[in-house]
Design a protein around this nucleic acid. Structure first.
Length: 128
DNA sequence: CTTCTTACA
DNA sequence: TGTAAGGA
């Protein structure tokens, strides 16, 4: 499920194709870019190149606009999503940290008590 | 021919 | 948002 995401992120579509796929004018597509929504890559000739994910986002923006939401509103929606994503990532990092805490605490115990893995085994055999 | 930027009777 | 201009 990752090879798929990679392909969806490949910028291979020129603006002309995007216009047909989204039914948006070049003017609109470039304007949304100015507004910070859907920034395409550029090829050697400074031409905009879009990915399938870019297409999806443009269609999404188009829908919001059709629903009567203005540029400011759409920006807010994406700003909120970005903040939520940031929090999810922060929480994930915290979980990994907690897992490491056990190992760190365990190693700390072994060091302070002067017990190596091998000696711990020996103690068990001696009824400790 | 397609796309780019800039500007606006 | 449309469209013209001038260049790539």
């Amino acid at each position: 499920m990752k090879e798929k995401e990679l392909r969806r992120s490949l910028a291979v579509l020129p603006i002309g194709t995007v216009m047909k796929l989204t039914d948006l004018t070049a003017r609109q597509i470039r304007y949304y870019e100015e507004q910070g929504l859907v920034i395409p890559e550029r090829n050697e000739g400074n031409r905009r190149m879009y990915s399938l994910n870019n297409i999806d986002k443009l269609l999404e923006v188009k829908d919001y606009l059709a629903e009567g939401i203005n540029m400011a509103g759409i920006k807010q929606i994406y700003a909120e999503r970005a903040q939520e994503e940031a929090k999810r990532q922060a929480k994930r990092e915290k979980s990994l940290t907690d897992a490491d805490v056990r190992r760190i605490l365990h190693d700390e115990f072994v060091t302070v008590s002067g017990l190596s893995k091998q000696n711990q085994f020996s103690f068990r055999n001696n009824g400790l």
